[in-house]
Simulated assay, not measured.
Amino acid sequence: MKHLQGKVVVVTGAGRGLGREYAKLAAAEGAHVVVDDTGAAADGTGTDPSLAQTVADEITAAGGSAVASSADAASISGAQELLNLALERFGAVHGLVNNAGILRDRMFVNMSEDEWDDVIHGQLRAAFAPCRVFGAHWRARSKSGDDVSASIVNVASTSGLNGAVGQSNYGAAKAGIASLTIILAQEIGRYGVRVNAITPVARTRMTEDVPGIKDMVAAPEDPSAFDTYDPANVAPIVAHLLTDACDVTGKVFYAKGGEIRQFLPWHYGQTIVKDGRWTLDELAVEMKPLERDAADGSGATHG
């Protein structure tokens, strides 16, 4: 049985790398897929509509169902164009994978305004706009009495959740996407929409350009060995999150090779308590446990 049989799924940034694998597996599992990609370079410059069309052609050649789009997912008008295309071609939409994004690494003190703004736009806004348009569509359907079962999968990054030198713009955007995921799940769950995110670790044009990472993610010399960083390894968790069999929402999952972990959100650690306002002299002493890494992770309360 195909796990996404008859579903309609929109995948942004699907012309290459991870997005291409998400689109191909969704189609192989029976979904009608809208393959969206502007064809821009990794830094967001340029366009090449042929990339999305090539993936759509690969899917149809394999017996699947797909249509290509070069709409800009980072704009409300582009997101609306994607929704309209899905509805016009396939009559409905059940899943959205927000994979589109750009990268412009720079040490923070050397970063220009454009390098900051363009990455926030190309990452965080590229998740916001489709979520906004598709979320409103599913809410309207739910309020009209339809039984909605829809899923959004956003793409965050360990750069945003764990940090990465030289990626303050990218990390800030990806952390924002993780937070958006949690909040949006709380807001639109009542309308039958689940919202989750993944932090993929794989060999892509972005990781291959990062100093010190290219060699780490290279394919193994032995062709029979498991290729941990093959982007196709991440596609199954994305497809699973799109299925009706998955009822989880508001979560972030790490995926690398055959490894999947749940990211835990920010949570309280060690605590100090006083019945009243602290003085600076008191804090100079009492803050020490909080300023050190707690070796035992006990999160003990002091007061």
Rank of each mutant, 00 (worst) to 15 (best):
K2N: 08
L4D: 05
Q5I: 09
Q5W: 10
V8R: 00
V8H: 00
V9R: 05
V11M: 05
V11G: 01
G15V: 06
G15Y: 02
R16F: 08
L18N: 07
R20L: 06
Y22K: 05
A26C: 14
A28P: 02
A28Y: 07
A28N: 05
G30F: 00
A31T: 02
V33M: 06
V34F: 02
V35H: 01
V35F: 04
D36L: 12
G39T: 00
A41D: 10
A42S: 15
G44N: 11
T45H: 08
L51K: 08
T54H: 15
T54C: 13
V55G: 08
A56D: 06
D57V: 03
T60K: 11
S65L: 14
V67Y: 04
V67R: 06
A71Y: 12
D72R: 14
D72G: 04
A73V: 04
A73T: 10
S75T: 15
A79Y: 04
Q80W: 07
L83K: 01
N84C: 11
N84S: 15
E88Q: 12
F90H: 10
F90Q: 08
V93K: 06
H94R: 04
H94L: 05
V97D: 10
N99I: 08
A100Y: 03
L103Q: 09
R104G: 07
D105F: 02
R106A: 12
F108E: 12
V109G: 08
V109D: 15
D114H: 15
W116Q: 07
W116D: 07
A129V: 01
P130D: 06
A136C: 01
A136W: 02
H137R: 01
W138C: 01
R139W: 05
R139A: 14
A140Q: 12
A140Y: 09
S144M: 11
G145M: 03
V148F: 00
A150R: 01
N154A: 07
S159H: 00
Y170C: 00
I183A: 15
L184V: 00
R190V: 12
R194D: 03
A197S: 14
A197D: 09
T199E: 15
T207I: 08
V210K: 04
P211W: 12
K214M: 05
K214A: 14
D215F: 04
V217S: 05
P220W: 00
D222P: 03
D227A: 10
Y229Q: 04
D230L: 02
A232F: 05
A235W: 08
V238I: 13
A239H: 03
L241F: 04
L241E: 00
A245F: 09
C246G: 02
G250P: 03
K251S: 14
V252G: 01
F253P: 02
F253K: 09
A255P: 05
K256T: 14
G258K: 12
Q262R: 15
L264P: 07
P265D: 13
G269Q: 09
Q270R: 15
K274Y: 09
W278S: 01
E282T: 03
E282W: 08
E291L: 15
A294G: 13
G299H: 13
T301Y: 05
T301C: 12
H302K: 11
